[in-house]
């Protein structure tokens, strides 16, 4: 029997294998790609056009001047793509657990944190492809940030995608059955999206309700949106960066704990891991 200690190359092989599998599944499910793209485009083409007439926007950082509502809403829609992608990954984890495919991953000799991190990063890569496709289409709709913004937004997309993906991973460990996923839509995705700065600036919220404004201000999704928004205009929102990094650590730590064979809930209750 040969020595089975893993050289660095083996770790890379394992990561690439997981990334390839996620990409293949994505490619095989063309409907998923279309749905991921159609959703924000409907918001941009229809919702934003309607709101443009009723919602006046004063100058709000990072914008230097008045902007069209379509321009304002685009970073929020980028984050929405990532939010839905994170939830899709979560759904896929629950599905894998129900079908048994998850076991193939979990019985790998690599540490579980590494397997989860690889799956997380692979999912984020897929979401970034979706976001850039959306931004390319939005460019023809007169949403044209500085050209370097497209590059500067990449690290922001990676971090926000990781945070939202880690949240999906964490949720997947707590969801027992696919049927429960509708609850996630109602209690996680929609509140997170609507109670954020994705669709309207926070000062607008304060005009309506201070409480709602405060809820939006502590919503991690707001900070994912603002991180993307500022990066797209070549600026860094340090508060949002800190919140996104903190939430990423919290959600991923929670997911690793929940999937740990000795500590997490899976170990304490009978069920399909």
């Amino acid at each position: 029997m040969t020595d089975r200690a893993f050289p660095p190359r083996a770790w890379l092989t394992a990561f690439l294998g997981i990334a390839r599998r996620e990409t293949l599944r994505f490619v095989n499910q063309r409907g998923r790609f279309l749905a991921a793209l159609v959703r924000p485009l409907v918001w941009l083409f229809i919702f934003a056009a309607g709101f443009r007439a009723v919602l006046g926007l004063s100058i709000t950082p990072p914008y230097q001047t008045y902007v069209l509502y379509e321009v304002y809403v685009t970073p929020g829609l980028c984050a929405m793509i990532q939010l839905f992608n994170g939830m899709q990954s979560s759904l896929s984890m629950v599905h894998d657990r129900e079908t048994g495919a998850m076991r193939t991953l979990l019985v790998s000799p690599f540490p579980r944190w590494f397997l989860l991190a690889s799956k997380l990063v692979a999912g984020v890569l897929v979401s970034i492809i979706q976001v850039y496709t959306f931004l390319a289409i939005a460019w023809f709709w007169d949403v044209q940030p500085p050209i370097w913004g497209y590059l500067a937004v990449l690290p922001a997309l990676i971090l926000s995608g990781m945070m939202l993906g880690a949240m999906g991973l964490f949720l997947s460990s707590a969801i027992r059955q696919l049927e429960n996923f509708a609850g996630v839509m109602n209690f996680v995705i929609f509140p997170m999206f609507f109670a954020s700065s994705a669709l309207y600036p926070l000062w607008r919220m304060r005009e309506s309700s201070t409480l709602l404004h405060d809820i939006c201000a502590v919503n991690p999704f707001t900070h994912a949106v603002e991180l993307i928004r500022f990066a797209l205009y070549l600026q860094v929102n340090w508060l949002s960066l800190g919140v996104v990094l903190g939430c990423l650590a919290l959600f991923f730590g929670g997911a690793v704990f929940m999937y740990d064979p000795s500590k997490g809930l899976l170990a304490r209750r009978r069920g399909k891991p």
Binding site: A14, G17, T104, F110
Partner: peptide, 15 residues
């Protein structure tokens, strides 16, 4: 083949 390739990568076996 893709399933087997995926499993091989989970054991660090190169392509």
């Amino acid at each position: 083949r893709q399933n087997l390739s995926y499993h091989a990568s989970l054991h660090g076996i190169g392509r």
